[in-house]
Design a protein around this nucleic acid. Structure first.
Lengths: 236, 236
DNA sequence: ACATGATTTGTACGCCGTACAAAGAACCGT
DNA sequence: ACGGTTCTTTGTACGGCGTACAAATCATGT
């Protein structure tokens, strides 16, 4: 509506769109977190580096837009059904976020230090708050819980991509677990008996199974908050 | 012991020690996450940049050593007392880690993407596993729980330093909360009613209070695991 | 005394983000 | 039709980065 309303500005037609730039950045990111330099992006879309600065004020803006775009790919339907139990809805959201974001490990690295407060991120927050309100949490607890979940989901992702560091493409989960198993076994058992004994479990740190295990402990802790009500539990 | 055993190598006496380099890096980091360049570190300790590479193979090694050093500053005594309730011990550990690490926000940024698997990190893991075993968790659950706690603690720190981004020195907690309050209030309430209503709570996201609230929910979830035992709860 | 081997330095390469001015292209009023 | 205006794109350049390489320096073992 406002699109068709304003007429074309004076200068020459723009050679690109913001989206083409983000496309280029995203595909470059899949070959390493540092691969998405302004110069590389520009080369990919066929312009000289400075041309990018007509579309974005600086590189940080490109990153911010990219993060928004990735968050925009999250399918809200998977957790929108209010007839479902709230825990399953949170699990669905957590899995969806992990699936969409860990598909681009390099982008996750960029998210660290990005503000993540664009409109899409806000909308996602709002949805999560709604979900937690549905669960029976009061407004304060819902806000606190949403941040807790955000920390868990985001923290898991960051540690996951840190684990594979620059290696691309992302190895299969089974392969990563095997690699970690080797690393943990190399620890001296005389100094770290518990670590050695738990090696098999710890090797599975980076796994969907562990991700869900931790999430379920959190949901358990939140459920206690729902059942008994805020006032009667004194630890907040 | 092995120190006095080996004699001095041939060349000239080294002008610095690894620790001096790390000192320089750490103090530089306190004026921004990108301030600790190899060149800046070298200038700080009074050598030409390349000299650093006699002490560390590359910059990543400097970062790894720095992370180890920071983790080494964690006071194990605050959670070592096995007579204390295990939850309080975990809280003490979490607070100690947060205190020691958020004292150097720039360093936290560097930790992202570092392996954090040096001997000191391993020792810390071992201690945490011991703590969770004391709590009554079996070996598998203890391993899983330790990673869950690690994700939470580390994720909180990462988001905390991302919030203040480059601003140094770190503003006081109350000041940061006030700033966030303003930002949240600016969100359009017609689109995000729950966010708007929860603005006050959400402004306190980055706070010791929120940090402990989330931690306590996690501990609550873990406690259920202790009380009923692993076999009788089916969600693992 | 001299050869040996580690340390430090000088210089250089190829990246990075981006500032600045000039050139080119599409629109406007005349 | 045309010159002026305004926007985009380009060329060039700066200061920074990590670090590779060879030369110089220096304390040691022989």
């Amino acid at each position: 509506m406002s699109e068709s309303g304003r007429r074309r500005p004076r200068g020459p037609r723009r050679a690109l769109t913001e989206n083409e730039i983000l496309d280029a950045a995203l595909s470059l990111l899949d070959q390493g977190p540092d691969a998405a330099s302004v110069r590389a992006i520009a080369a990919r879309v066929g312009v000289v580096p400075n041309a990018i600065y007509t579309y974005f004020p600086d590189k940080a803006a490109v990153v911010d837009a990219l993060v928004e775009r990735l968050l925009g790919e999250v399918d809200h339907d998977v957790f929108a059904d209010r007839a479902q139990p709230w825990r399953e809805r949170v699990e669905a959201l957590a899995l969806e976020l992990r699936a969409k974001l860990s598909a681009h490990p390099g982008a996750v690295s960029l998210m660290v230090g990005s503000r993540m407060d664009g409109p899409i991120a806000q909308a996602l927050t709002e949805r999560l708050l709604q979900l937690l309100a549905d669960a029976g949490l009061d407004a304060t607890d819902a806000a606190r819980a949403s941040y807790l979940l955000f920390v868990y989901i985001f923290g898991s992702l960051v540690l996951e991509v840190a684990d594979v560091q620059h290696k691309v493409p992302l190895p299969a989960e089974s392969e990563r677990i095997a690699t970690r198993q080797l690393a943990f076994s190399a620890r001296p058992p005389e100094h770290f008996p518990l670590s050695a004994a738990a090696a098999a479990t710890m090797a599975g740190y980076i796994s969907t199974e562990q991700y869900l295990w931790g999430l379920r402990r959190i949901l358990e802790g939140l459920a206690a908050r729902v059942a008994t009500g805020r006032k009667s539990v004194g630890s907040g």
